[in-house]
């Protein structure tokens, strides 16, 4: 028993792609046996994992607080859906265009704000989010206004619509997850953490702080755009209310509950929050109160989120070890404050 556990720990620390891919295969097999409702929920978890992974690069690794991601998520959904509806563009082309477009547009939108940090950056991005939301509601000729529009579903390999978007989302999210995880283990990851921990010291060591912030924002915007494009096909109906400030807060809760600055937390957070949402859906009237209480409990008793607990198990000792750091097979420590390596 000890040997497999050791090899799992070793593979996890070294950043092997085998385990994430194996997990994805297991999720795919389980997903294909689920009823449409549960598969819909699982697909939501998968899509939000992609979005939260990007948000984690921004918030967890780089320490940048943004409220624009629900809007970027929305732009991704609208661009994907509207390109199909208005222009008759095939879904893959629309999805790729939305991802690239949101990466570019998101970066341009916040470029002036990148001179800011902390609460000032948050307020600037909130302004961007509100402006985008206003456009989605009021540019009716293109966006169909507050009522939204029906987005085409997709079908692959003769599967039904939900199964098709589930598998598509799972494949793209797995690839995206592996790429983002790879990136934060390189010098880019160290630069993200450096500008979060102390931007003055980072600059004195040659880190271009503005460029690093731009990369972090572009990466997370790209993830949001891709997730939005997938979400439009899952919902089959796109409306502004799916991308409002409440959704933004929910995304942040997912990142915090999972574990800020941990890639594993990007998967756990959405799963837990969506599971809770569904469990509490029957408790109408109490839903918000119970959900709020659970969140307060997390903040009070598990502020670092779930992922550090799992790392402890994987580390096999009383250390809060990490999954980041270059893939040299050595003990590593690059992480957010939530799961930094601590000698005991």
């Amino acid at each position: 028993m000890a040997v497999p556990v050791q090899s799992i720990r070793s593979a996890w620390r070294s950043g092997s792609w085998v385990y994430p891919v194996a997990i994805a295969v297991v999720v795919a097999l389980i997903g294909m046996t689920l009823n449409p409702y549960l598969l819909f929920l699982l697909t939501r978890v998968v899509i939000f994992s992609m979005l939260v992974a990007g948000l984690n690069v921004l918030m967890g690794y780089s320490g940048l607080l943004s409220f624009a991601h629900a809007a970027l998520f929305g732009i991704g959904a609208y661009v994907t859906g509207l390109m199909q509806v208005h222009l008759g563009v095939p879904y893959p082309v629309a999805l790729l265009t939305a991802t690239v477009g949101v990466t570019g547009a998101g970066t341009l939108l916040v470029l002036p704000a990148l001179r800011l940090s902390g609460i000032h950056l948050a307020i600037a991005t909130l302004a961007v989010a509100q402006a985008v939301h206003w456009v989605l509601i009021n540019w009716s000729a293109v966006t169909f206004g507050a009522g939204g529009f029906r987005a085409p579903s997709i079908a692959i390999f003769g599967l039904n619509a939900t199964q098709s978007i589930f598998l598509t989302s799972l494949v793209l999210t797995t690839i995206g997850y592996l790429m983002v995880r790879q990136l934060v283990r390189t010098s880019f990851g160290r630069k993200f953490v450096a500008i979060r921990d102390n931007s003055v010291a980072a600059a004195a060591n040659g880190v271009n702080v503005t460029a690093t912030k731009t990369i972090a924002f572009a990466l997370s915007a790209g993830c949001a755009g891709l997730a939005g494009g997938l979400y439009s096909a899952l919902l089959g109906f796109v409306a502004p209310e799916s991308f409002n400030l409440e959704q933004m807060i929910l995304m942040k809760v997912m990142a915090v509950v999972g574990g800020l600055g941990t890639m594993l937390g990007s998967m756990i957070g959405p799963a837990l929050v969506i599971f809770l949402q569904e469990q509490l859906r029957d408790s109408q009237g109490w839903l918000e109160i119970i959900f709020g209480a659970v969140l307060i409990g997390f903040v009070l008793f598990l502020p670092k989120g779930i992922a550090p607990l799992i790392y402890r198990v994987l580390a096999g000792k009383r250390t809060e070890t990490v999954e980041t750091g270059p893939r040299t097979g050595q003990k590593v420590g690059l992480s957010a404050p939530t799961d930094r390596a601590v000698e005991n």
Partner: peptide, 13 residues
């Protein structure tokens, strides 16, 4: 940087 190990801090240079 508190979120990095000692050697990673040096690598930042």
């Amino acid at each position: 940087c508190s979120g990095m190990s000692v050697v990673e801090n040096v690598m930042l240079g």
